[in-house]
């Protein structure tokens, strides 16, 4: 695996994503749910909302990096608020 040039931060990043996917798979199995229509006027399941959250968070981080450029941890805080909004209203 050395050729993949692993670092601890990237390993933690992928472990967090894998954990999110695993947790939501387990939740999906234990508590199945029906799709719902939110403010985007599209049907979304819990999995769709995870995808929208992850993709949106990537863009929030990039926007923070490009526009603010410092204190990247605050971008994560914005992502947390965004995730809560997605799960509540989308």
């Amino acid at each position: 695996m050395e050729w993949m040039a692993w670092t601890w931060p990237t390993a933690i990043f992928f472990l967090v994503i894998a954990a999110i996917l695993l947790i939501f798979t387990v939740i999906g199995l234990l508590r199945p749910e029906m799709p719902r229509v939110g403010i985007l006027q599209i049907e979304t399941t819990r999995g769709d909302r995870v995808f929208i959250t992850l993709l949106g968070s990537a863009f929030i981080n990039l926007a923070w990096l490009g526009l603010v450029g410092a204190n990247q941890w605050w971008a994560l805080a914005v992502c947390a608020v965004y995730a809560a909004a997605v799960f509540r209203w989308v």
Binding site: W3, M4, A5, W6, T7, P9, T10, F14
Partner: peptide
């Protein structure tokens, strides 16, 4: 894709 992410921070 994982390898590319690793490269992007080094």
């Amino acid at each position: 894709l994982m390898t590319v992410v690793n490269y992007s921070v080094q």
